[in-house]
Design a protein around this nucleic acid. Structure first.
Length: 889
RNA sequence: GGGCGAUUAGCUCAGUUGGUAGAGCACUCGCUUCACAUGCGAGGGGUCACAGGUUCGAGUCCUGUAUCGCCCACCA
């Protein structure tokens, strides 16, 4: 193809849309049960339906797309299952905000109408993130897109609930839960984010007599909960309080008499050694209260406001009340002192409101029985994390697991499939209301108003998306999946729970391997967030740098499991690399006229040393990239490709090949075309998972490539290693050649030879190297701009010359005109010093008897060889120095 | 309180069985040479956090220390 048909600079905007359409139209993303092939299944971590693409998604989905394309090319029936998560709280919040802007509210609309509005919102905006993923190049099987509120997935949720209910693993009860006063719902322990804060520890005296100031002093960080106190507790072994145990004191403000009780739980050393007991608003106090049969008193309601039981503070916000309580205590002389106190405070994962521990009636899943087999799965090796230190994190959580609060006081979500008899409140679990109450025979029922935690649907994702509870063909074929990758932030929310669900409902772990990548941070190492404004918009980056560049940069930047410090400028690496590939292809294509890869007979092609060398390097690259992808070292694969494509193919091979490209047509020229074509074609295959758009585009214009649906690069086979291609002798020869060329270029600059001027060079080489160097002499001439070139074992040194030693070859740059002898001798002295230092360190090593005796023979031998070479090099350089010095007089 | 990760060139980071320390960016010098200035060529720059230990040999293995970061945890 004539080169003018490809733009001088790669422009992603011109190709991305067209290529993506070609993939989708060809149906190449669609996976179906194929008996002849093995399934390779990846489940997309379903993004929030409210979400917009952020850098974390970019990393996550790029890795997955690299993997799925790699496996697809390897011949697996590769399914990447996409979809979105209904995200109960997040979505409800978004729609509620919209209603507020419209001047109405959820409660005004009523439940049914509100849910209808959420669905409508989802129709309008829910697809944003899906379209964004497509722009990134994600090759999901979009025909299979699922949503956690779909009919099928909802049915799976009911099935799971009823199954666990029947087994006695779901129960309902009054417990202290994490309550978000803003979202006005209970949340699970995992949804609470603990933040270290500097709190205040208030030492409050509870008087023996009403109105008195003599009493027992307790320490508390939450003075407003004083109103709900039912006891003061001390340690039974604490001598200070022995006499007081069993006596009673009065709660300030409301003068309620409460007992002083003894319990081991109280730490004598902490605070005042005495603890106020508020069972309704503290998890520990709740347990303590149960042990001592104390009735909890609720003083804070579900909006975080003090209720009627809070006496004088009723109606105040909890934090306003705290200030008021402290102020009044001081006035009453009951505040002994206040200390600063470092503590950690729970916040709502969704809205960052301070969590209120609240006594309420909720549904729970009993986790112990589910965790046990999930622990065994890891210990037996059927499940592994990568990097493996996450195994410990998983095990630690699993072994200390607590029951899962699954009910949410929301309207958007899967409603709990339990109906209560209107007469006697007996609960009945089932699909739809029962016909008659099993206890009283009543026929009127009301469904539980609460919905289930969003993760109660997400944890079923690996099989619910494939049809469960129906035993579909897809489910049989594609479950279990082969691989999961996600961020460590959802290891408990999602990963661990999927393992438990997979084992419980499918009798099989959902995946054998979980790869956890790092978190994308900004350059200062801060987490990217909306409020900090430090998160670039990935779509904007795609517009400016291209999806290929963004993908490649993210992969290159992400070593296994480490966090990534991202900045926009780093996208330039990926962009420049894409452009390099583009231009190398332009060069190659401009010399392909008349070349037909199908007609290539490799057996008769007159391959040269440089051809054998680049084919060797290509084969090494195929092997290393495949190996790295197999072992989740994506950044290493990307780096190896970068080095091969840029450092070997572009910098050297294409420069070598130009010699023949511009030569007369003939077998040698055809060989150069064939090798260039082969290397480029293979390179495009290897790069395709990382840079799908540009590689697909170039493949479509490469001879033998095609853009028709059948031979899209996305469906081409992954290159395999061809060991016969390796040629160590040619590789060593070319390595030597490159060093010599570099050395001549260096001498030219050191000697101030102008870039445009030819120089004459003499290479004095060992007999065994003269042959290959002579064969390669044309490359020395063109790449180092050499005029006369003499090569041989017995060649004469030019009279006026700058010299260098490369391996066992002496390089002489003939300088006919003026030579700066001072500069040259200074340079030689520097070189000699460098060699001398190296030689001395090797000598010292070899002089060590222990080294000679204990190190492996081949290491000792290699060091010996090295010393010989160093000494030889030094001697030759010294000779030249002597000649220079002689000539200088 | 427990666990984990990090500490290598000015910056961001690679470095998988221990055997002569690497890349990109930045920097210096020189080049618009017929694929590419998103480029080409040649360079400078590192007691691999610190202290011990194992070893003929340690960035790499072991122990400890320091600093930073993350996760888990019911001392109010």
């Amino acid at each position: 193809m004539p080169i003018r048909e490809l733009e001088r600079t790669f422009d992603p905007a011109l190709v991305e849309g067209r290529i993506y359409k070609a993939w989708k139209d060809s149906g190449q993303f669609h996976a179906r049960p194929t008996p002849a092939r093995k399934p390779f299944t990846i489940m997309i971590p379903p993004p929030n339906v409210t979400g917009i693409l952020h850098m974390g998604h970019v990393l996550d989905n790029t890795i997955q797309d690299v993997v799925i394309r790699f496996r697809r090319m390897q011949g697996w029936e590769a399914l990447w299952q996409p979809g979105t998560d209904h995200a109960g709280i997040a979505t409800q919040n978004v729609v509620e905000k919209k209603l507020r802007d419209e001047g109405t509210s959820r409660k005004e609309l009523g439940r049914e109408e509100f849910v209808a509005r959420v669905w409508k919102w989802r129709e309008e905006y829910g697809g944003v993130i899906i379209r964004q993923l497509q722009r990134l190049g994600a090759s999901c099987d979009w025909e299979r897109e699922r949503f956690t509120m779909d009919e099928g997935l909802s049915s799976a949720v009911e099935e799971a609930f009823l199954h666990l209910y029947a087994k006695g693993l779901i129960y309902r009860g009054h417990y202290i839960v994490n309550w978000c006063p803003r979202c006005q719902t209970a949340i699970s322990d995992e949804e609470v984010e603990h933040v270290d804060v500097e709190g205040r520890l208030h030492f409050v005296t509870y008087p023996f007599e009403i109105g008195g100031t003599e009493g027992i002093t307790v320490a508390t960080t939450r003075p407003e909960t004083i109103l709900g106190d039912v006891a003061v507790a001390v340690n039974p072994a604490d001598e200070r309080y022995q006499a007081l145990i069993g006596k009673s004191v009065h709660v300030p403000f409301i003068d309620r008499p409460i007992p002083i009780i003894a319990d081991d739980y109280v730490e004598m050393e902490f605070g005042a050694g005495a603890l106020k007991v508020t069972p309704a608003h503290d998890i520990n106090d709740f347990e303590l209260g149960k042990r001592h049969h104390l009735e909890p008193i609720v003083v804070i309601d579900e909006t975080g406001t003090m209720n009627a039981a809070a006496g004088p503070f009723a109606g105040q916000d909890r934090f306003v009340a705290r200030k008021g309580v402290v102020h009044r205590l001081k006035e009453m002389g009951l505040l002994a002192r206040v200390e600063n106190h470092a503590m950690s405070l729970g916040h709502c994962h969704r809205c960052n409101t301070v969590i209120e521990p609240l006594l309420s009636r909720q549904w729970f899943v009993k986790m112990g029985p589910l965790a046990e087999p999930a622990i065994r799965a890891l210990k037996s090796g059927r499940l592994q994390f990568a990097p493996e230190h996450w195994n410990k994190v998983y095990l630690n959580w699993m072994t200390n697991i607590r029951d899962w609060c699954i009910s949410r006081q929301l309207w958007w979500g899967h409603r709990i499939p339990v109906w209560y008899c209107d007469q006697d409140a007996t609960p009945h679990a089932g699909r739809g209301a029962p016909t008659a109450c099993t206890i009283c025979g009543g026929a009127a029922f009301t469904q539980d108003p609460d919905v289930l935690d969003t993760w109660f649907s997400s944890w079923l994702w690996p099989f619910s998306t494939l049809g469960w509870p129906e035993r579909t063909k897809d489910l049989d074929y594609f479950y279990p999946t082969q691989y999961l990758t996600t961020g460590p932030d959802i290891i408990f929310f999602w990963v661990a729970r999927m393992v438990m669900a997979g084992i419980e409902f499918m009798d099989r772990e959902p995946f054998p391997v979980v790869y956890l990548h790092g978190i994308v941070r900004d350059e200062q190492g801060r987490k990217m967030s909306k409020s900090l404004g430090n998160s670039p918009d990935p779509l904007d980056l795609i517009d400016r740098y291209g999806a290929d560049a963004l993908r490649y940069t993210m992969i290159l930047l992400t070593p296994s499991g480490q966090d990534v410090l991202f900045s926009e400028k780093k996208c330039e690496v990926g962009r420049n690399f894409a452009n390099k590939i583009w231009n190398a292809s332009r060069l190659a294509l401009s010399h392909m006229e008349g070349f037909d890869p199908a007609a290539t007979d490799w057996k008769t092609l007159p391959l040269q040393d440089v051809d054998r060398w680049i084919l060797s390097r290509l084969d090494e690259t195929v092997e290393s990239v495949t190996g790295s992808l197999d072992t989740f070292r994506y950044n290493e694969a990307a780096r190896d490709l970068y080095e091969f494509a840029w450092g070997d193919f572009c910098d050297w091979y294409l420069e070598f090949a130009k010699q023949l490209f511009y030569a007369e047509p003939g077998p040698e020229r055809t060989a150069a075309q064939a090798v260039t074509h082969e290397v480029l074609a293979t390179l495009l295959h290897l790069l395709h998972p990382f840079q799908p758009f540009i590689t697909e585009e170039l493949w479509s214009v490469l001879p033998g490539g095609s853009s028709d649906g059948a031979s899209l690069l996305i469906r081409r086979p992954w290159p395999v290693s061809i060991p016969e291609r390796r040629d160590d002798a040619a590789s060593a020869g070319v390595a030597h050649l490159k060093e010599i060329i570099t050395s001549i270029r260096n001498l030219r600059i050191e000697m101030n030879v102008s870039p445009g001027k030819n120089v004459d060079v003499v290479l004095k080489a060992r007999p065994n190297e003269s042959g290959i160097l002579s064969r390669l002499s044309g490359y020395v001439r063109s790449l180092a701009k050499v005029g006369d070139l003499v090569i041989g074992p017995e060649v004469a040194r030019p009279e006026v010359a700058a010299a260098a030693v490369v391996g066992e070859t002496e390089v002489f740059l003939s300088l006919t005109g003026a030579i700066d002898l001072t500069a040259e001798s200074a340079r030689l002295n520097r070189e000699i010093d460098k060699i001398e230092k190296l030689a001395q360190s090797v000598e010292k090593k070899l002089a060590n008897e222990d080294f000679r005796a204990k190190a492996p023979a081949e290491v000792v031998e290699a060091e010996g060889e090295r010393l010989k070479l160093l000494r030889d090099t030094r001697a030759r350089l010294a000779d030249n120095l002597a000649i220079i010095s002689g000539g200088a007089k």
